[in-house]
Every structure is written in structure tokens, then in C-alpha cells.
Design a protein around this nucleic acid. Structure first.
Length: 505
RNA sequence: GAUCGGUUAGCUCAGCUGGUAGAGCAACGCCCUUUUAAGGCGUGGGCCCUGGGUUCGAGCCCCAGACCGAUCACCA
């Protein structure tokens, strides 16, 4: 970048940097700066009576400067929040040389620069807790102006940094300038850590399985393709890790889970990012009914850990995460919202019913897919409070065990909250002969034109042939769960760096 | 992928039927020792997303494109 392309403000900051160097001060010092407290700690615990915090050392970014001559106020922002500092010329420059105050602090330090200060806490005439500064150290210089959001007395907002494109592309600026963004990501971290704690307390093992897979099994989605040079073979970025986790159950672990990125080469919108975080867990000797209770306990625990309550306001609805959740079979849910019992309908009758409901159909759709279409169109959006939909048609679910008593169905549930799928679980299919047949059925669907049909994984079948205990498995979309628990409406707002097109120039 | 909307100063946004490009905040200069949107006075700052076209003249009109957003489609 040439000097000519810099904005006026960038040029000024580079000149200020140079002038600081010329006064003999290093604007990017190498040595550590030892803080002894934080802005939040002082705010929480300062007590004028006790006269505490008389030797504080803090560091952060300058967010505002109010210069008044021989004394000034500024605000600095650390990881915990803002605090005001009071800088008096003759206190930071006790001798004849007033350069540090007159030149460096007043003129050469800009909003966005990192400084460290030593001093004591006090309250100003107007009652604002501040740090009376005795020593001031430059820790790092900012060369670009930071848009600091301010609200004036009439409530007008100045300098808001709101353009979604800019916020996502320059998340580092967004995080500095919009404090509520940090809070969302702190909660995201807490959701992940509390979920791990919940599982770890039950002695289930966190594991890692391959991201690069030769066969993209375990789900139906278009994958990203890549290539390994030394092996000279194509690989896919995983669309799911289900088949690997089940191999570990075959191997003798009785509870394994993985929290990790999945990659799907498909459309992007408010609820889809090409890479997203999923949690999958498999527990041996359990079934999907047990799993429903586990999920209720787990989500209740996480909600409490993250928000201190099991209730969350979202889209004007108060969602209650404490169980038990409503349970409804897929057929029951369709009957409830269309008034029609479809459980006995043949594929042709189902297709006719779809037309009656004005749902578009095509010949590649089997009976299961048609049911799914009706469900998606008529039922899904109504499921605001956490609701389990159970017992799915067999042909849509090639990895789940046949229902213990209901013909043509599998033991599966999905959890819906606020009209969106949050979790998906099965009593896992562990009969290798049945599993092979299901893969074969998928192949038939693919021949009919269903491009979402699942791919056969011969090694996975081999593992089942060695024997897998009865197992229940669950997947949760962590990004969508985070959206719910943090009140966000776009997946981009719960990802630090959402995928975007390349920036021009 | 389709439709609609957006793109103008560091940030947020005005800009009429086409006629020398504006505001607030930020920046710069001077004044000011407890302010808090500090204040007062003054100053500078623009490939108006890109490329074509119409016109005496385009930020504005037309065509093509880029990027972002919303809705839909797709994505169990």
C-alpha cells in the first residue's frame, strides 16, 4: 500500500507514531506489562470509605480523550470493560520536562492506542470512579481510526458501527466497538464448556475423528472435495462423523462424543454456513427414549449455566428449556396440524394428499420424503416450545433401528425449538445385514434421482459385522443452539468469522 | 439460483424534476487543572462501488458487472 492511498487520519497516526519514536519512546515495547487488576474488579469492589485500590496497574485501549489543558480525562477499555482515568500534567511529569503529557499524551496518543497506567482509584467531583494516574506507558499504537459508538444526551447515536458486511469482515473492530458482541461469544464458549462438563461428569469420552474422509458418509449433503498430494487421492471434508463414532462404540468405548466442524457445500443463509459446529454423542446400551431424557437434562443444565435461568425470550416467545418436553410421533403431529391421519396412506395416496395441500412434488420422492414435505410445510413452524417428534418413516432414515413395535417406522426423534430442528437422535441400527439392505435402498433412491441419498461405506459395514452393542446416538447443531440461547437471528452473529465472498481489491 | 433493496468523508447517513458534493460524530489547530456526547473558536478531508452509455453537463437517467442485506428456492 502506498502512502498516497492512506486517508488523512491514517497519515496523521503514522506521523504521530514517528514523532513518538523521535522522543525516544518505543511505541511497541517488547517487555511484558504487569497488570494487577481489571476495570471490572475496580468497579465492583472500590469503596471510598475503605480507600482501597491505592496501587492499581491496569492496561487497555484508549476509547475516549477529554483534554482540558493541564489535566485531562480519558477512558480505557480492557477485557472486562471501560474505566475512566484522570491524567494531570504535573503528576505524570514531575520535573521540568513535560513532553510525556504535553506532546505524547495530549497530541500523539490516539483513540485505539494501548496504554498501561499506574495510579490510585478515586471518585471525581461528579462522582465518577476514576484512576488518578501517576505513571503512563505506551504499549501499542493504532494506525487506523476506530469508530467509537457514542450516545448523546438526546439519545442520538454517533459513529455506530453497524454495517453487517464491515462487522463480519472486520470482526476485530466489531468486538472492540460493540461490547454486546463479546457477550454473545462468551456465552457461546460457555455453552460448549458446560456441555462438555455435563458429558464428562457422566464419564463419556471426548474424541476426535477424521475431517478428511475418503467416503463422505453419515449424512446426505453435498461435500467439499480436496486432494492429497502424496497419496494422490481425492478426499472429502466431512459432512458428518457418525460412522466413525460408531466404529469407536464397536471398539468398546461405551460413551463417546465429538464437538467439531462439519462442512457442507450448499446454500448459505441466515441458518446455514458452509462450515458449522456439530456435537454428536453415542452411548452404548441405551435407546432413543433414554436419550430424550438425557437431552432434557443436558439443555436445562446448559441454559442455567449460560443465562442463569431455563427460560429464554426469542422472537417474543418465552421458551422453557426445563423438561420434560412434549413428545409427539410424526404421524400424530401431521394429524394435529392437518386434521388427516396419513399413517395408512400409500405412496400414491400421499402424493395426492400433497397436491391437495398445494405442496410441490416430483417423481423422485418416495413415501418418506413426501411425509417429510408435509411435515416441513404444515407442522414444523408450529413447534415453538421444545418438542420431540418421534418415529420417522424408515426410508428417510437409513442409519436408525427399525421401530420395536410400529411397522415401517424407525426409532428416531428430532427436537424442535422455535420451529427449527435443533437435535436429531436414533436408536442406532446395529444389525449389519439390515444396514447393508438400507444402503442398497438408498442406492435405489439415488437411481430415481434423489441426489441426497446416502453413500455406502463398506468399512463401516465391516465394523458392524464385528458386533456393535445397542446404542443411542444424538447430534446437536451447536450454532443454532447458540442462536437460541443468545437471542441471535443469524448464524453469522454466532460465528466469529462467517464465510463471505472474497473482498475486492 | 430468482426477486427486491443498498453501496456518497474514518463511522452513521442526507443529497429535490440532471446544474460547482452536505450534516453529525471522528480528525487537525488554538484556548481551558475534575470532565463525561466536556466546551469555545477555527481548519482540512471525497475514484459518490466498477466499467460502458445518454447529455452541453451524471452522485442522480440507461446498460453490464462486483459486493452486502432481505425474502424465496436449495440445504432431512
Amino acid at each position: 500500500m502506498s502512502y498516497m492511498q492512506l486517508s488523512e487520519q491514517e497519515i496523521v497516526r503514522r506521523e504521530n507514531l514517528q514523532k513518538i519514536i523521535e522522543t525516544g519512546v518505543n511505541p511497541f515495547p517488547a517487555e511484558m506489562f504487569e497488570k494487577n487488576t481489571t476495570s471490572a474488579e475496580i468497579h465492583a469492589n472500590y469503596d471510598a470509605e475503605k480507600n482501597n485500590f491505592q496501587e492499581v496497574v491496569i492496561a487497555g485501549r484508549i476509547m475516549q480523550k477529554r483534554i482540558m489543558g493541564k489535566a485531562s480525562f480519558a477512558e480505557i477499555l480492557d477485557n472486562t470493560g471501560r474505566i475512566q482515568i484522570y491524567v494531570n500534567r504535573d503528576e505524570i511529569c514531575p520535573g521540568e520536562d513535560k513532553t510525556l503529557y504535553n506532546t505524547i499524551f495530549k497530541k500523539l496518543l490516539d483513540i485505539g492506542d494501548f496504554i498501561g497506567v499506574k495510579g490510585y482509584a478515586f471518585t471525581t467531583k461528579t462522582g465518577t470512579l476514576s484512576i488518578h494516574v501517576s505513571e503512563l506507558t505506551i504499549l501499542s499504537k493504532a494506525l487506523r481510526p476506530l469508530p467509537i459508538v457514542k450516545t448523546d444526551a438526546e439519545g442520538n447515536v454517533h459513529d455506530a458501527f453497524t454495517d453487517p458486511e464491515q462487522r463480519y469482515r472486520m470482526r476485530y473492530v466489531d468486538l472492540v466497538v460493540n461490547p454486546e458482541v463479546k457477550e454473545v461469544f462468551r456465552k457461546r464458549s460457555k455453552i460448549l464448556s458446560s456441555m462438555r462438563r455435563f458429558f464428562d461428569d457422566r464419564d463419556w469420552l471426548e474424541v476426535e475423528t477424521p475431517v478428511l474422509q475418503a467416503i463422505h458418509g453419515g449424512a446426505a449433503a453435498r461435500p467439499f472435495k480436496t486432494h492429497h498430494n502424496t497419496l494422490d487421492m481425492p478426499f472429502f471434508l466431512r459432512i458428518a462423523n457418525e460412522l466413525y463414532l460408531k466404529r469407536l462404540i464397536v471398539g468398546g468405548f461405551e460413551g463417546v462424543y465429538e464437538i467439531g466442524k462439519m462442512f457442507r457445500n450448499e446454500g448459505m443463509d441466515r441458518t446455514h454456513n458452509p462450515e458449522f459446529t456439530s456435537m454428536e454423542i453415542y452411548v452404548a446400551y441405551k435407546d432413543y427414549i433414554w436419550m430424550m431424557e438425557m437431552v432434557e437434562q443436558c439443555l436445562e443444565y446448559i441454559a442455567k449455566e449460560v443465562n442463569g435461568t431455563t427460560k429464554v425470550m426469542y422472537d417474543g416467545n418465552e421458551i422453557e428449556f426445563a423438561g420434560p418436553y412434549v413428545r409427539m410421533s410424526m404421524y400424530e403431529s401431521i394429524e394435529k396440524y392437518t386434521g388427516v391421519d396419513v399413517s395408512e396412506k400409500s405412496e400414491d395416496e400421499m402424493r395426492a394428499f400433497c397436491k391437495e395441500l398445494h405442496i410441490p412434488v416430483d417423481p423422485s420422492m418416495g413415501r418418506g420424503k413426501l411425509i417429510d414435505e408435509i411435515f416441513g410445510e404444515k407442522v414444523e413452524a408450529n413447534l415453538i416450545q421444545p418438542t420431540y417428534i418421534t418415529d420417522y418413516p424408515l426410508e428417510m432414515t437409513p442409519l436408525a433401528k427399525k421401530h420395536r413395535s410400529k411397522e415401517g417406522l424407525v426409532e428416531r426423534f428430532e427436537l424442535f425449538i422455535n420451529g427449527k430442528e435443533i437435535a436429531n437422535a436414533y436408536s442406532e441400527l446395529n444389525d449389519p445385514i439390515d444396514q447393508r439392505q438400507r444402503f442398497a435402498d438408498q442406492l435405489e433412491l439415488a437411481k430415481r434421482g434423489d441426489d441426497e441419498a446416502m453413500v455406502l461405506d463398506e468399512d463401516f459395514l465391516r465394523s458392524l459385522e464385528f458386533g456393535m452393542p445397542p446404542t443411542s446416538g444424538l447430534g446437536i447443531g451447536m450454532d443454532r443452539l447458540t442462536m437460541l440461547l443468545t437471542g441471535q437471528h443469524s448464524i453469522q452473529d454466532v460465528l466469529f468469522f462467517p464465510q463471505m465472498k472474497a473482498e475486492k481489491k
